[in-house]
């Protein structure tokens, strides 16, 4: 009886796993894994790539998507000097948080302590400008999607013609990696959409790679100190564990 239950449980598990993987293969191919500078124990953000990514965000994505959790001052993490950060901030118009002494809200050039302003004053305005769809905030997007950076890269480079017989809704685009494949966002990147100051050719995969590096930094700005601290903590603990083990051996030597 028991053996039968175990056997059938094991059988079920095996067949489930194969059934699921087979079905998944029909729908969405596995995400292509990219080489990311921030992968691994010593991963850091490639500053040049992240700066190009910020340019792609600023010139392309920011037409519809905010990065609510980012302040201009954060950009100094990407290797911009204080003057460059001030210049970037000043190129934006932001609404002052407090009204002026006439009681009116007013616009002024941005400062490093300001949040990077989004394209729309509120979600309703964003929806009405985008055919009813709400462009999500991008400051957390890499952490907010299964697959993380590989998923966002896959999505940006995954626009294809729909397969024959696929029923597309009005105004939707076909994307290989988007759940359900119908995405309201038109293909955001096209070759040459931006001109990189460092001469890097602005191909779609290059821009996708750079903007994902930027967005991963936006979602996890403390990744580098985390990796550095983690390395020190791990080394310390290995030494301490070794010492404790030696002490334990010595103390217990007579007790066995």
């Amino acid at each position: 009886m028991l053996i039968r239950i175990v056997a059938s449980t094991a059988l079920c598990l095996v067949s489930c796993v194969t059934a699921f993987s087979a079905r998944a293969a029909d729908e969405t191919p596995p995400l292509p894994h990219q080489e990311w500078s921030f992968d691994g124990v010593f991963g850091t953000y490639d500053r040049a790539s992240a700066q190009r990514g910020f340019q792609v965000y600023k010139e392309v994505c920011s037409a519809c998507h905010p990065v609510k959790h980012l302040y201009f001052r954060n950009l100094s993490d990407l290797g911009y000097s204080d003057d460059e950060v001030k210049a970037i901030a000043a190129s934006y118009q932001v609404t002052n948080e407090q009204p002026n002494d006439q009681g009116e809200m007013y616009q002024r050039p941005g400062r490093p302590s300001d949040r990077i302003p989004g394209p729309f004053p509120n979600d309703q305005a964003a929806r009405v400008a985008n055919n009813g769809a709400l462009p999500p905030d991008l400051s957390m997007i890499v952490k907010a999607r299964d697959g993380g950076p590989d998923y966002v890269y896959g999505l940006l480079t995954g626009y294809k013609e729909p397969p024959p017989g696929f029923n597309m809704l009005q105004g939707m685009q076909y994307d290989v990696y988007f759940p359900g494949h119908q995405i309201a966002m038109p293909p955001p990147l096209s070759d040459g959409a931006v001109t990189f100051a460092d001469g890097t050719p602005a191909t779609v995969p290059q821009m996708a790679h750079d903007v994902v590096t930027f967005l991963t930094w936006a979602a996890e700005p403390n990744l580098e100190p985390r990796h550095r601290t983690g390395f020190k903590v791990t080394l310390f603990l290995i030494v301490v564990a070794g010492l404790f083990y030696a002490a334990k051996r010595k103390i217990w030597a007579a007790a066995h």
Partner: peptide, 11 residues
Amino acid sequence: YFTIKDLFGLA
């Protein structure tokens, strides 16, 4: 005996 064993396990 067990303080050191627990400390090793903790590390």
